[in-house]
Design a binder for these strands. Structure first.
Lengths: 221, 221
DNA sequence: ACCTGTATCAAACATCTGTTTGATAGACAA
DNA sequence: TTGTCTATCAAACAGATGTTTGATACAGGT
């Protein structure tokens, strides 16, 4: 059995057995994100992680157990250094007294920052890519991630949108608009192959990323 | 015997062998859209289509051949009765002389209509869902669909956005904004499990669909 | 009649899949 | 030492997967 070092999963652990678990988790994020859960075999995983075939079942109880462990692993990473709202360092009290202009400015900063984090840095952000895959799929992984991570950040977005558009926070249009903001950032990463084709780009260069930051739909009516 | 059951389909099959191919294609759209390509087995397909196991390989050369055939099948359906831009019955000459207000109005109508087509009508639109899955994946299917269907409609969207925002059609921001419009409609369908959780909805009722139509980000700066 | 190409069918094939097994080595304590 | 618990390893397992095979039936042309 393993001890309780699950709280801190940000950097590689010290104990040998924890290193094995960590290597498998990182390999899973990479391969699940790139090829999808179903298309990734356990033998792909153990080759990438350079561990024994039985390690996945020994440490995580099976491929499905690994899937859930990856969700939790990513959830802690996102809690510590999540994209978007968390970066702005806001709390609800601050948002409540924001001017619409300031709220829009904050939203655009959040959108830019979160997109930049996902898009830049060489290849695709496989962490974000895997999360987005799971969120699309539905079922237990989606609910698990929604509760653990998304719910909190989404509510902050809703409050910012409410200030930005001068509408009530419990207005359903406000909530849909918050989603439609997230949708723009997520889609540009998730459907990257199509987007690059449509824009005639080879990849997301720093110049392209800056340009996208100015193109989000985010105005007052 | 069973020729009036597929009233919404593009073309009913005539010859017996064509009926087999057609049944497999429809089953593939349904299962690939619901579970994904990798997670769908050939035996799932032939059970759904009620044909023999060897039929997939005989008619399509294998599971991968079927994947490409499905892309082409959907491409023809989209050409005949595509969502969004095609419905508006526009051509480039009309768009060129539109006022910004009229262009925005047209865009919102297109967004509403295409979202409504995908979201309403009982369960999820598995055709759209499969297409969106493939577009995310990248590779040959993405390029195939981009060339055959998406490219044309996307260019019309770009021209409408250019008029709506009074920017040039070859401005890259214009093109990104067109994508960010599509992103909103697509994401609401693709990430439906997450969206429903976030909004506290059980499903997309007609009321919900109408509400979403008013919540798209689509304004002038 | 005969021949030919097409389509369907049950069965089998070779491989891949996730999982389990039993052996083995190291760490730590009595 | 001995015993026990943990982790890793190679090997094997049972089932699923995509594909192929060979037989069969049917339709149209000669």
């Amino acid at each position: 059995m393993s001890d309780q070092t699950d709280q801190d999963a940000a950097q590689p652990p010290e104990a040998a057995s924890e290193q094995t678990k960590y290597a498998i988790l990182e390999a899973a994020i990479k391969l699940f994100g790139a090829k999808g859960f179903e298309a990734t075999t356990v033998r792909d995983l153990i080759t990438e992680a350079d561990v024994n075939l039985a390690a996945v079942n020994y440490h995580f109880g099976g491929k499905d157990g690994l899937r859930m462990a990856v969700i939790d692993h990513l959830a802690t990473q996102f809690r510590q250094k999540g994209p978007g709202v968390a970066l702005a360092g806001l709390d609800q009290a601050e948002i409540g007294i924001m001017s619409p202009e300031k709220a829009r400015e904050t939203l655009r900063f959040i959108m830019k920052t979160s997109f930049k984090m996902a898009a830049s840095g060489g290849g695709p952000d496989l962490r974000a890519r895997y999360i987005q895959r799971e969120l699309i799929q539905g079922g237990e992984p989606t609910e698990r991630f929604f509760e653990k991570v998304f719910s909190f950040q989404f509510n902050l977005m809703v409050q910012l949108v409410a200030r930005a558009t001068e509408r009530a926070v419990d207005d359903e249009i406000t909530r849909v608009r918050a989603i439609n903001l997230i949708a723009q950032s997520v889609f540009l990463n998730l459907a990257r192959p199509l987007v690059l084709l449509a824009l005639g780009w080879d990849e997301y260069t720093p110049e392209n990323v800056d340009l996208v930051g100015d193109a989000f739909w985010l105005h007052h009516e």
